[in-house]
Amino acid sequence: MVEEIINSHGIAEDKLVPILLDIQNSNDKHYLSEDDLKQVSRLLGIPESRVYSVATFYSFFSLQPRGKYIIQICDNAPCIVNGAYNVIDDFRHILGIDMGQTTPDGLFTLEYSSCLGCCSHAPAARISGELYGDLDSEKIKSILSDLRRR
């Protein structure tokens, strides 16, 4: 799998970020395993330390297994003044996990996000690439039950 992804991009050091992104997106757990990083290092001829440096620098890479749905809650100023803390608390209580954690069934991971660009619909979150705005308790409950039924 890793080899296929690398070949599709070409063996070049400057393709490291898109290669890592593709690897991360290609697995259900949305993360980069140690073995992935080792393979990338070997196939691209980049020291492991440099691959690790890139993978730990960007917050969109995870070295820990994550859930099927990654819930990224915006914690920038406009969302905060519009109640992002309540949103965060609602997600935490309903899912029974803390920020940065994954539910034991492997369905949901909670993360912070920088501005998602939809301040007019603050507080906002992005779940597996899809945007959700004007969040409140009711909306959060229905989003989560929809996702569970999927």
């Binding site: 020291p47 730990t56 620098f57």
Partner: peptide
């Protein structure tokens, strides 16, 4: 150029 030590995180 053994490449063991490097900066990580941010």
């Amino acid at each position: 150029q053994v490449g063991i030590l490097f900066d990580a995180y941010r």
